[in-house]
Design a protein around this nucleic acid. Sequence first.
DNA 1: CATGAATGAGTCTTCATTCAT
DNA 2: GATGAATGAAGACTCATTCAT
Lengths: 201, 201, 201, 201
Amino acid sequence: MGLTRKEQAARSRQKLLDAACELIRKNGYDATSISDITQACGMSPGNFYNYFKSKEDLILAIEREPYDSFFDELEKISDQATINQLCNYIKYYVDIAVNKFGVGYNRQWYAQHMRPREDLEKPTKLEITINECRQILTHGVQSGELAHNTPVEDLSEYIAFELHGMNICHIMSEGTFDAMAWTDKYCAYVENVMLKPYFVH
Amino acid sequence: MGLTRKEQAARSRQKLLDAACELIRKNGYDATSISDITQACGMSPGNFYNYFKSKEDLILAIEREPYDSFFDELEKISDQATINQLCNYIKYYVDIAVNKFGVGYNRQWYAQHMRPREDLEKPTKLEITINECRQILTHGVQSGELAHNTPVEDLSEYIAFELHGMNICHIMSEGTFDAMAWTDKYCAYVENVMLKPYFVH
Amino acid sequence: MGLTRKEQAARSRQKLLDAACELIRKNGYDATSISDITQACGMSPGNFYNYFKSKEDLILAIEREPYDSFFDELEKISDQATINQLCNYIKYYVDIAVNKFGVGYNRQWYAQHMRPREDLEKPTKLEITINECRQILTHGVQSGELAHNTPVEDLSEYIAFELHGMNICHIMSEGTFDAMAWTDKYCAYVENVMLKPYFVH
Amino acid sequence: MGLTRKEQAARSRQKLLDAACELIRKNGYDATSISDITQACGMSPGNFYNYFKSKEDLILAIEREPYDSFFDELEKISDQATINQLCNYIKYYVDIAVNKFGVGYNRQWYAQHMRPREDLEKPTKLEITINECRQILTHGVQSGELAHNTPVEDLSEYIAFELHGMNICHIMSEGTFDAMAWTDKYCAYVENVMLKPYFVH
DNA sequence: CATGAATGAGTCTTCATTCAT
DNA sequence: GATGAATGAAGACTCATTCAT
């Protein structure tokens, strides 16, 4: 039925984004050609460049998207108990990594972000994960759920490192690692062991 | 002078292997061409195929494991208290990663081990790390230092993931991350928080 | 506001023409895309085809000749001595080229007129310059100032080529070539050397 | 019969050079694709890049070649009378421009060299022509054939401009301008008119 | 063992052009 | 008149691989 031009364009762009994600996830970045992507959308190759400046640009667009929404996610859960926030965050992270990105895409992601960096000022992707954890824990301390002496800094690092380590395990296992089961156990561990000493009551 | 053909051949093969390692680490697998590799060795591209059936074949050949030798180290410390063994293991791991290998080599290591694998039977390098942790913890349970209900499996994973996550952080920070300080804190955390519930007495 | 459709159309067409001129001058015909042109006008690419059948059609439309108006000037000086007419013509030419048009426009002018031509009947812009010189010299022969055996044809060519050669030098030098000084010397040369053998007393 | 590898390579490179020259001359630079060139040589497209870094590189190689040999040409004729040197130089220039390069290539040549320049230090192509003329005339003065008051500087410019103006005429006429006939007349003019006042005896 | 010229399929990207809105 | 999404044919360039020398 009647789609406006803008809607049509947005839909095409999203189709490309989804197809690209899917293909890169399956085959990896280098093994996915622009033609593969447009073909999967039933488009001509040239049309790709109406939406993305280059193949490189596509990756940036894909990457920006779901990780950006972490912050939105944090917003949505900001009124929950700290431990719930944290567990939801962890589950959300794993879900994105495993279900949305998958092994192929994550491989590319790490390859890219482990390259030598020019701009040492910008926070690394790992620091961003740490920041997000810290944000939740800090909020927990401020709200009185966690003790003042909670080593927020250290715990944030531990969790962030753990998530990335798990991600790598997932990649190396070619996706056979059961990330979802792990997540449940790890959340329980965070609650019952890691944060245990710091809960107020 | 006076090298036999066989020696010459072995030397050429090794040169190719080393150059490939170096280049793939720097630029990634797909961005490293056969020409790049042979040129780095002062060879002609054709010569590559005297030693490797294909580019894919090369990757399989790059399977030297400097991380493997940890087992020897474990032997040496097997009579210490479990917590000491574990902390020594962690310190040893970090020391190797940071001081011996450094950012450059680790980049290469991950790039290599995150590539798609054919042989799903062989344990991944991360699984090896988990195994080593498990070995220590299991020993702790058997010796009565740790309770029988210690979730050895889970804790081994947590520690192994943490170590690799830290390693990645170290890489992404271009070596500015203070891994040694982190190690001390993490060891304390392992002793005082993670294993706390499971110590017998 | 309040433009009729026709006026609006004419204005759009002219904007396209001007933008095309400007861009082709700067980057060359092949390096100038329809999108470049329409974008420079703040138009959509499709709109181009409301005014021109094709890109090739555009080039044919860019046939405005500011150099043509020299003939008017010739009228005004037709009662002077031949050598003065010629020198004034040369000076006028150089003045127009250097001061009025400048390096930028001349670049465009040559780029445009050196493109492959379909209509071999129409005189080239260079032939027009030759014609103008010939007109002056012929008049000189007819008025008895120049000998009958004056090789009018050849000398006209020499002067016309010289002017265009100088113009190109001016362009290539980015305008640092001192065209005015050159003009004085060249006029003296025309009088004292080139035409010397043909003056009747 | 038995060609060495190096000979074979040199021959291939030359074949590419010749075919490129021929095709660009006929169709212009932009209308000549790498495939066109290699196909004309019975080669695969990829092989082109064993000999030239890029398409741009090819142009530079073509261009360098015949204009470089002007200097060799000057060497060869350095013991002739100045007027003969000059006429031979002019004839050689026209021959290269018309027969070797042709309209298509020259179009490209001028388009390229009339572009805005970054490096104002390097002499323009036109200055090189002036230099070559000056070299011959200076030698004529030094050898006593031409008077000391010969305006070498000016005359060199006149001749160089004339040659380029003629070249442009040749382009604009789509090659119908009879450059060879013109050359003969112009050489006679240089001898009998332009240099006449300055010959010693 | 080593060379390097040659292959040719494949990649990213551009762009003139069309057409439904 | 104007828009801009879509097309698809080309083009420059790369690279794993082969093979005659």
